[in-house]
């Protein structure tokens, strides 16, 4: 992921957030001083990157920030650190959202759209890697779900209540960072069957 971003941006920063979650730090190659100041001063509250994120309302989207929009004190300061991001990508998968700001003032809309697709794929990869952190019991649970067992059948097989099944689904969602269990199950299947079945 970092390589792909370094190839396209002189500077970038991204966060992966759950629904309603606020950013406190970012994965970035911007200067440490800027990164610390950005979150200490809560610049994300006025940053067009996060304004666009809010406007997306849980959906994916991309846009380029115009030069006129960059005529603000925030951008003036960001420019000193090479952090005047003009590219914004918001990716939404099952309640997980990745917000990325990147600096590349040569981008046109077509190229930006292509990079946005790559950002979506990168977001998916981040979530797929989290599947590998699931416990054996959580994998057993997902196996039953993948085979189409309904909650009542799973509860019966595990000897637990229906509400315990719901709790286990929530725990799996939390670990992967999504809010939608169908998305968690889909990510699990994609990860598990990769190299055998070409699931998209």
């Amino acid at each position: 992921m970092t390589t792909f971003l370094q190839e396209n941006f002189s500077g970038f920063g991204y966060v992966v957030l759950g629904l309603g979650e606020m950013p406190t730090s970012a994965v970035t190659n911007f200067e440490v001083d800027w990164h610390q100041k950005y979150f200490a001063e809560q610049y994300h509250r006025v940053d067009p990157v996060f304004k666009f994120f809010a406007d997306c309302r849980g959906r994916s989207g991309t846009r380029l920030v115009s030069e006129a929009e960059m005529e603000t004190p925030l951008y003036e300061e960001a420019k000193l650190y090479g952090a005047d991001s003009n590219f914004i990508s918001v990716s939404a998968i099952g309640g997980s959202q990745m917000v990325l700001g990147g600096v590349n003032h040569d981008l046109d809309v077509t190229r930006a759209s292509m990079i946005h697709k790559s950002c979506r794929a990168a977001h998916r990869s981040i979530l797929l890697e989290r599947v590998d952190q699931l416990s054996d019991l959580q994998i057993d649970f997902l196996e039953m779900c993948e085979e189409g067992l309904i909650d009542k059948q799973i509860a019966c097989e595990l000897g637990v209540s229906i509400s315990a099944v719901a709790q286990r689904k929530k725990a799996i969602c939390n670990k992967i960072g999504v809010s939608n269990f169908r998305a968690a199950l889909s990510l699990y299947s994609v990860r598990k069957w990769s190299g055998i079945v070409p699931l998209v």
């Binding site: 196996e143 993948e146 085979e147 299947s189 069957w193 055998i196 079945v197 699931l199």
Partner: peptide
């Protein structure tokens, strides 16, 4: 070289495997 087609519905993939 295990390969399974996308024609196989998810709920019977394990069974086929």
């Amino acid at each position: 070289r295990l390969a399974i087609s996308t024609l196989v519905p998810g709920e019977i993939r394990n069974q086929l495997l």
